[in-house]
Amino acid sequence: MTGRQGVILYGPPAAGKDTVTAALTELRPYYRQFARLKVGTGKSTGYRMGTVEQLRELEAAGDVVYANSRYGNTYVLDRPGLDAAFAAGVPVVHLGQVDGIRALVDGYPADWSVVLLWCPREATAERSAGRGDRDTAARLAAWDATREDLDAHPSAVWNLTVDTTAASPQDAARRIDQLLAQRAGAATA
């Protein structure tokens, strides 16, 4: 145990990862969304935009903890970015793949609390359309891939599961904050 705490939010598109992270930040300002390195195009908010050359340099240095491709882009969890995130507070990492969770938990030492945020496929469709996504079909395909990922990894362990159609973002944030407080207390006991 390193004494450093981090949060991993796993779930399908539009399950509420951004919204719950915003509620966490409102609850305690030391929670901060980890800005993954994104190599590609499209939405840049919440990402550190990078180049193929930067990705190659990180790979050559052994600093890629996990990378995945989706929506025609590459998303990277990188060691220097994680170091900076921990220096700034408690990082909240958004992931949509169980393999990414395993790579992060095994590849970057910290006390990671893993939270499954879930919503039905219909909720993803409604939320995606409601926020004006132009790629709702791709997000529904990603929802299907997340469901398949869960089914393929029945032994995945969640420290907390939140149905975001039943819990408000503020309630989810309070539950996550309580989880971290309990884990920190158990680590010092």
Rank of each mutant, 00 (worst) to 15 (best):
D78L: 03
Y30K: 07
G46E: 02
V7Y: 00
G42E: 06
L24I: 04
D151E: 15
G132Y: 07
A123Y: 02
V39T: 02
V115D: 00
P154L: 11
A187Y: 09
V105T: 12
V64A: 02
L150M: 13
A35I: 02
P12L: 08
L37I: 04
W158E: 01
Q170A: 15
Y71V: 05
G81W: 00
G11A: 08
A167L: 13
T41W: 11
G185A: 15
R131K: 08
A189H: 14
Q54E: 15
L27M: 07
D111H: 11
D111Y: 06
G132F: 06
L82G: 00
A61S: 11
D149F: 06
A137Q: 10
T25W: 02
H153W: 08
G42Q: 07
R131E: 09
L95F: 01
D171K: 08
A141K: 08
S44W: 07
A138T: 14
I176A: 01
G132Q: 08
P80I: 03
A181S: 09
G3R: 13
T51F: 06
D144H: 12
E59S: 14
Y30D: 12
T165C: 11
E59F: 08
T146N: 14
D144C: 13
F86V: 01
R174Q: 13
R121T: 06
R175F: 05
R79A: 04
M49S: 12
T74I: 15
V98K: 03
V65Y: 01
S168W: 09
A138E: 12
A35P: 06
G72R: 14
R134E: 15
V92L: 02
D133S: 14
Q33R: 15
L9I: 05
A60K: 15
L82M: 13
N73I: 10
A145P: 04
A166Q: 15
R183D: 08
D151W: 07
L150P: 05
G130R: 04
A187N: 08
V7T: 02
N68F: 10
T25C: 09
A156L: 13
A187P: 04
F34Q: 01
C119G: 14
A142F: 05
D78G: 08
A138K: 11
L180A: 02
R48Y: 06
E59L: 14
L9M: 03
Y66H: 15
N68K: 10
R28E: 15
P154E: 07
A123C: 06
H94R: 10
D106A: 13
S44H: 09
T45W: 09
A15E: 02
R36T: 04
R48V: 12
A110I: 05
E57F: 08
L179D: 01
P169T: 00
P169V: 00
A138W: 06
A88G: 07
Q170R: 12
